[in-house]
């Protein structure tokens, strides 16, 4: 039993320490966490999509930010917040990382960012039903997770399929329906943003930036398995 307020602190040095930190903030509201961090709670998250995640990162001492390496790089652990409702249903897909549309030559699953980020994940559920004001949203109990063999292989298959489309110039044909668990969706502040990609004939084209997302089925299965 811990009776001390969690000190927002430096990078955790071990998996156990990270888990302890995450457990220490479980049950607190975002308002309480924001107060402890000395930041204000935004009125809505439309414009500040990653606010919740960043707040949690801050409290757990993550350093990687939005870089393509795990949040806790030296521990090899990625932090992911998971919006759920009161009944424990996952409410949204989970952003994994930006999908590189160029420079993928020789890219392999084992060295890919998706694989890197999903090797070991600290899932932090957040009670985030739309009806609950942001300040009152509650941080859930952390789940430290690694993919099972079958999950790993399913992710790998999805990734291979999506990367093939990206690399062979079919990025514009990709819809969220590709992939069983991993999907590729536009990832940008607005629809006008474009980034470089590769076209049908190997020529450079402009495409909306894409991100890898985990479908809800996948994260729900993690929660369900944890609940037993």
């Amino acid at each position: 039993m811990s009776f001390y307020p969690p000190q927002p602190s430096s990078e955790p040095q071990s998996e156990a320490e990270l888990l302890e930190k995450a457990q220490a903030i479980a049950g607190l509201s975002l308002a309480q966490l924001a107060e402890m961090a000395g930041v204000s709670v935004p009125d809505n998250l439309q414009k500040e999509k990653g606010w919740g995640g960043q707040l949690i990162e801050y409290h757990l001492g993550a350093t990687a930010g939005s870089k393509p390496v795990p949040d806790f790089e030296h521990l090899g652990i990625e932090l992911k917040t998971l919006p759920i409702n009161q009944q424990g249903r996952v409410l949204e897909t989970t952003f994994v990382c930006v999908a590189p549309l160029t420079g993928n030559i020789g890219q392999q699953w084992q060295t890919s960012h998706v694989c890197n980020k999903l090797k070991r994940v600290l899932w932090v559920p957040i009670l985030a039903e739309r009806t609950i004001p942001i300040a009152d949203r509650i941080v859930g109990y952390p789940i430290l997770w690694s993919p099972s063999d079958s999950e790993y292989n399913a992710l790998k298959q999805d990734w291979e399929e999506l990367m093939e489309l990206i690399c062979l110039g079919k990025v514009s044909e990709i819809t969220a329906k590709h992939g069983q668990f991993l999907q590729l969706r536009p990832k940008a502040a607005n629809a006008a943003i474009r980034t470089q990609a590769i076209g049908q004939d190997g020529e450079p084209i402009m495409s909306p930036p894409k991100g890898f997302y985990l479908k809800k089925d996948f994260t729900q299965a993690i929660i369900n398995r944890w609940l037993g």
Binding site: A37, G50, W51, Q54, L55, G65, A188, T195, P208, P209
Partner: peptide
């Protein structure tokens, strides 16, 4: 650090 497509630091990043 901004991810591709992100145009400005988020509120959180600015405040912190």
């Amino acid at each position: 650090h901004l991810y591709s497509g992100q145009q400005a630091p988020s509120l959180f990043e600015r405040e912190i």
